[in-house]
Design a protein around this nucleic acid. Structure first.
Lengths: 234, 234
DNA sequence: TATTTTAAAATTGTATGACAAATAAAATGA
DNA sequence: TCATTTTATTTGTCATACAATTTTAAAATA
């Protein structure tokens, strides 16, 4: 653990490029409250004067901040601070994970398991209704039900109403979709039963029970996918 | 939910700057396996020729990738792909959260609750020993025990051995430390008891029990912090 | 030949200047 | 006053140059 911290320090101390410095300053504008989310920044030419740096350096910093989702730039209009944390950086990072499906499944599972505990505390009656509707749609609609399935999980995730977690789960669900879209699910009855049990636990507002039911569900899904993947590889 | 997807599409489609395009290409080098983590990239002058872009544009892309932790640059040496996903981008993103301690606590709680379920499946005997040592240290050492407490949580988090989750929890724990360092904990006995219960559940390799014990612990911590914060604000 | 010294090349970091394109604002003409 | 034209603004992009330092190559010397 301590080593890990050292690594970070040793990596960040010697590298104090101007661009990095500028990025920090601009973040400071936000952190110090001088500018607020959604505000328009000063144009590049002014910022270069204010910070005494060249425009390429400033633009390197801006580019970094944009890739982190902290700002977004509109051509021939200006630069704005983002309203909320986006899932963009997480998505970019996950591209590094490449085809590591097991790690993505595990991360998704962990995140959903934690979030459902929070959801059990906070979910609204209306969101419970929406959940119930997806279950009905799941049992009644014919053909591919993957969209309805995703909706179920998204409703739960967003019922937590935490933008930090939203950014994390959003990127993971997208990566999961992308990588598992060719995997077939054909056990509608199992899915319906699992979703119903999760729904009932949420209705009771019981974190532990909701966790248990979600664990049962995701553990089942996980094993199924990894098994199918193994078979298709062999 | 559907709206959310629209937003992302509408935001990313019109903006296809060269720098962004270049960044994607370089990520592709990694994703396609042409280059591996730790490999040295081609020098900037060569990349500009290969991609037919100017150096400032290339450097904007590089700057983005570096802030995402995908590459790191060494002055007068070269640019290298990172060995592993770092928590850097998450940390920068959390600066947007500002002083929103409740959201950070909630996110940390969710993540730890999910991760301990995974930890119960995967933790090694040696890591269990390490956990036990922190409990001993916690009960015996005098004075401030916050460092030992953090170590306990970190061992569990890293026992999951999932680099995606590591990046997420690392940034959250750092943000949490930063914001709660002036909050005093003075209930050592409670902490020891909670940690022991968590340890025992992990030893049994029981995800549900580990979850339950961690929930009890973090729920206690959360309420305590938020209460203290409320009082100090009043 | 071996060693030391010197020079050259390589590489990232930074600055300057310029132009394109499109929108918004200002000026001009009827 | 209204419509048209011009100008200014602002991001996106390119080309070039120089600084600083490390590595490499060459050359000179013992």
């Amino acid at each position: 653990m301590i080593k890990k911290k050292q690594e970070i320090v040793l990596d960040s101390v010697p590298r104090k490029t101007l661009a990095k410095e500028v990025a920090d300053r601009i973040i400071q504008l936000l952190a110090s409250g001088q500018l607020k989310p959604g505000d328009k920044l000063y144009p590049e030419t002014e910022l270069t004067k204010m910070l005494s740096v060249s425009r390429p350096v400033l633009r390197e910093a801006m580019s970094s901040l944009e890739s982190l989702g902290i700002i977004h730039r509109k051509t021939r209009d200006g630069t704005y601070f983002s309203e909320k944390i986006s899932s963009k950086p997480y998505t970019n990072m996950l591209s590094l994970a490449g085809d590591d499906l097991p790690s993505i499944i595990e991360a998704r599972m962990a995140l959903e398991l934690g979030m459902i505990a929070m959801a059990a505390e906070k979910i609204t009656d209306q969101q419970l209704d929406e959940l119930n509707q997806t279950i009905k749609a799941l049992s009644e609609h014919p053909g591919d039900y993957s969209q309805v399935d995703k909706e179920f999980h998204r409703i739960i995730a967003f019922s937590v109403n935490n933008y930090i977690l939203e950014g994390m789960i959003d990127s993971l669900l997208m990566a999961f979709d992308r990588m598992s879209k060719n995997i077939q699910f054909r056990e509608r009855d199992v899915a319906v039963e699992h979703h119903k049990a999760i729904y009932e636990a949420l209705k009771k507002r019981s974190p532990s029970e909701a966790f248990a039911q979600m664990y049962r569900h995701l553990d089942y899904v996980r094993k199924k996918i990894l098994k199918q993947r193994k078979e298709s590889k062999a």
